[in-house]
Each structure stands twice: as C-alpha cells, then as structure tokens.
C-alpha cells in the first residue's frame, strides 16, 4: 500500500511537472496582459505535429527538434499577437475571450483538415525508464519534467535579472505607468506571446515521445492548464509550477487511492473551490 502511494506520488510529481510546462506559457500571457488564451493547448498540439513530422519525414529525434520547433513557435506567438491579440488588448472582456476562442477553432480544425483524424506517435526503440526515487519513470517523461523545471528557472531568472525581463514585469503591473516610463509595452506584450507560445511548443516537443497526437489532444490538457494557473495563483510564473504539481499529485493520489474514474472530478472541484475561496491562488497576494 505504501509502495503504491509512493509510486503514485512520484509519478504524480513528474506528471505535475509536465502539466506545469504546458501551463507555463498560459500563465505568462495571462499574467502579463490579463488575456486568457483559450487556444493555448492548440499550439501544444501543433508543436506535437511539427515534431512528429520532423521525426517521420526527416528522422529528426524529438530532442534535436527543439532548435527548429521552438523558435518557429516563438515567431508564431509573436505573429498571433501582432495579427490578432494586439487589437483586443483593451477591448471588453467578451471580445478577448471570443478572439482566442475563435482561434482555437481555426487551429484545431486546421490541423484536422491538414492531418486528418489519425493518431500519430513517435516510436524510439531504445526508449527506457529511469528510476526516480525508486520508482521507474519513462525517460521521456523525466526529460520533460527536467525541461519543465529548467524552463521555469530560466524564465524566472529572465524576469528578475535582465532589463527586458524587468520591463516585461513593469508592463504587466501597470500599462500606463510603464508607457510613461518609456517601456515599449506593445513589444513587451508581443514578447510575452512569443515566449508563451514557445514554451507551449517546448512542452509539445517533449510530450510527443510519450503521448500521441491527434487534432483533439488539446482537450486533454487545456482545462488542466487553466486549473494549474488558477490553483497556483495567476499573475505569477511560479504559480503554474505549484498548480501543476498540485494537480499531478491530486490526480494520481486520489485517483489511485479513491477512484480513477473521478480523478478529474476532484481536480475540477478543487479548481472551482479555489476560485471561490481564494481566487488569488495558493501563492497569490491578496492585493492583486
């Protein structure tokens, strides 16, 4: 029994890191410009396709696809901002929600039209497992977890120590003040979209060795990503990390101990409860 709990916990942590990586970009964009990107998981899906096709057609190993896929998706995020999001930054809430909602449809069914309803996965014969604290975990998942930690660390360092990062934070806190200080807020927003979508792509690249991709795979992750951001506390990058870990643990522990059928019932109930009781999340300050 204790062994089972231990296994569920360890794999829950790794799973949580994966969820956190998916949620990272969502959290960044949400925090910087208070726009919720409903299409976030669709970029994840597209990145998974990109990585798959590089592997299937060019025999490029997913890990080596990072230098190609991630910059391309940075550009895609930047472009999305310039073409669409820029126009709704200060629009009413409804317009913001619907703009990314429409984008979700376009991307998902675009993928459907391009790739069909088939399911694709990358198969690497040598794929093994790594013992993590005595529990075997797929090497690809451990890699994804480490990449997740690294991404959070790098982003936090970027925000704290670089001039651009500080400018980004200033733009996030108060648009008007940032403008008055001469910070190019518009470019900061574009940057946050570029970075946010790039991290989604990073998640896609490292998910494909374990997961399979189909046009609707975003559904598996979107709500969990929202839940991660809200549980951890939106408006802070580390919130997504804490939230993702909580969900991974909650899902695996309650799923294993109580009933897997209801594992997402627990997660979503926690999500709604957090919204109601502590909308600022676990880490959030009361002030914001």
């Amino acid at each position: 029994m204790t062994e089972l709990v231990w296994q569920a916990a360890v794999s829950g942590v790794v799973l949580g890191l994966v969820y956190a990586l998916v949620a990272l970009g969502l959290s960044l964009i949400w925090g910087v410009m208070d726009v919720v990107n409903l299409a976030h998981a669709e970029y994840l899906m597209l990145a998974m396709y990109a990585t798959y096709w590089l592997w299937a057609l060019g025999r490029v190993d997913p890990a080596l696809a990072v230098p190609v896929v991630v910059p391309v998706f940075f550009g895609l995020g930047w472009l999305t901002y310039q073409a669409l999001v820029r126009r709704i930054v200060r629009a009413p809430l409804a317009a913001q929600i619907f703009a990314t909602f429409g984008l979700l449809f376009v991307l998902r069914y675009g993928a459907f039209a391009a790739f069909g309803p088939n399911v694709y996965g990358v198969w690497r014969p040598g794929e093994g497992t790594v013992p993590v604290l005595g529990v075997p975990v797929a090497a690809s998942k451990v890699t994804a977890g480490l990449v997740s930690l690294a991404a959070f660390g790098l982003l936090a360092a970027f925000l704290r120590y670089t001039k651009t990062g500080k400018a980004l934070q200033a733009a996030a806190q108060n648009r008007e003040v940032a403008l008055a200080l001469g910070i190019p807020v518009d470019r900061m927003y574009a940057l946050s979209w570029g970075l946010g979508i790039a991290t989604a792509a990073l998640a896609g690249v490292f998910l494909i060795p374990f997961y399979q991709v189909s046009p609707t795979i975003g559904d598996a992750f979107l709500l969990l990503a929202f839940a991660s951001v809200v549980l951890g506390g939106f408006g802070r990058v580390d919130g997504a990390l804490v939230g993702g870990l909580c969900i991974g643990l909650l899902e695996n522990l309650l799923g294993t101990l109580v009933s897997p059928t209801f594992k997402f019932l627990f997660v979503f109930a926690a999500f709604v409860a957090m919204l109601l009781v502590r909308p600022q999340g676990l880490l959030g300050d009361v002030g914001r």
Partner: peptide
C-alpha cells in the same frame, strides 16, 4: 470530413470579436 465549416466558424468568431 475536413472540418472546413469549423475553420470558417472560428474565423467568423475572430472577426466578430475584432
């Protein structure tokens, strides 16, 4: 079964919001 209609709806929704 291309889902062309849904792409169209998505575009329409984006345009409406803009």
């Amino acid at each position: 079964g291309t889902g062309a209609d849904f792409i169209l709806f998505g575009l329409a929704v984006v345009l409406v919001s803009l």
